[in-house]
């Protein structure tokens, strides 16, 4: 079997490391030279797609080829862009709202044994429940403006940040606490220099998970009760059977997801460089 030679085993280990949400960046980084192969595979798939559509004469409103999608996307670019900024704004505001509420909330719960005992099991349960189901109610309450989108987004992003925050602030090596106490650290120093840095890696896990949900929240809210934004635009376009434009809109959405993903990745690199570099070395 292949796994016997060490190189293959290492490759296998690499693959396992990539699965986390952090996978994309590391994959791209690791590939280096073999970067060409996935690009070729991608181009080949596109060519195949175009070929099938052309040869079998698939109606364009059902399944357009990539060339049509790109053409249509470029032609509709101004309109897509106008909706793009709306969705991006809802997603960013919702995400920030979740961060602003969840991080202090997780601190309170982590510091109070009573609050943790009472609330943590319920929060875990709430984390698993599908919160998307609340979107129609939120829209019924708040109408069709920006606010309901922001709230739905915040609702989806809230739990991962909260739970990982609690875990991060809670799990600290007691020896580190004893050491800093015997060095005479004041409470605020304890927090600022010991607890917070210790919690940040776990907190960032939650922040990254939430980042992947922000776009989903905004788009679903726009599906249900929108009058602007990419989600609303996609629904109206598909009602008119303009699949080519629909796929172009989806591509635009994906760039928002990627922007979130890389944005948090960059902030993480700035905030906890010591951890990111360590993880990279261990992952190798």
């Amino acid at each position: 079997m292949k796994q016997r030679d060490p190189e293959a085993a290492e490759k296998a280990a690499d693959v396992s490391g990539q699965v986390a949400r952090t996978g994309l960046v590391r994959t791209l980084g690791q590939l280096g030279l073999p970067f060409l192969q996935p690009v070729l595979a991608f181009l080949l798939l596109l060519a195949l797609w175009q070929l099938i559509v052309t040869i079998f004469g698939v109606p364009q409103y059902l399944f357009p080829g990539p060339i049509e999608v790109i053409e249509r996307g470029i032609r509709a670019a101004p309109k897509i862009w106008a909706n793009y900024t709306t969705t991006l704004r809802s997603a960013v505001l919702g995400y920030l709202l979740a961060v602003v509420v969840a991080v202090p909330g997780s601190l309170i719960i982590a510091y109070s044994a009573f609050a943790e005992k009472s609330l943590f099991p319920g929060l875990v349960l709430l984390h698993i429940t599908p919160k998307v189901t609340l979107a129609p109610i939120i829209i019924a309450w708040l109408g069709f403006g920006v606010l309901p989108k922001v709230v739905v987004t915040a609702l989806l992003c809230f739990m991962p940040i909260m739970l990982n925050g609690i875990l991060g602030f809670r799990s600290i090596d007691p020896e580190i606490v004893y050491l800093s106490q015997s060095c005479g650290a004041r409470p605020w120093e304890m927090f600022w220099k010991v607890r917070l840095p210790n919690a940040l890696p776990t907190l960032f896990t939650g922040l990254k998970h939430a980042a992947s949900l922000a776009l989903v929240g905004a788009v679903i809210a726009e599906f249900i009760g929108g009058n602007h934004g990419l989600g609303y635009y996609l629904v109206t376009v598909m009602d008119n059977m303009q699949t080519d434009l629909g796929l172009a809109i989806m591509a635009a959405m994906t760039t928002i997801g990627l922007a979130f993903f890389f944005g948090i990745q960059i902030i993480e690199g700035l905030a906890i460089p010591w951890h990111v570099s360590k993880r990279r070395r261990e992952g190798r």
Partner: peptide, 23 residues
């Protein structure tokens, strides 16, 4: 060949397929 592509596709908001699938 395909793993990077699949990780990339994983970044596409999957629920956005809903209107297309309904059409």
């Amino acid at each position: 060949s395909f793993y990077p592509l699949l990780v990339f596709i994983d970044e596409v908001p999957k629920i956005a397929f809903a209107p297309i699938l309904i059409t």
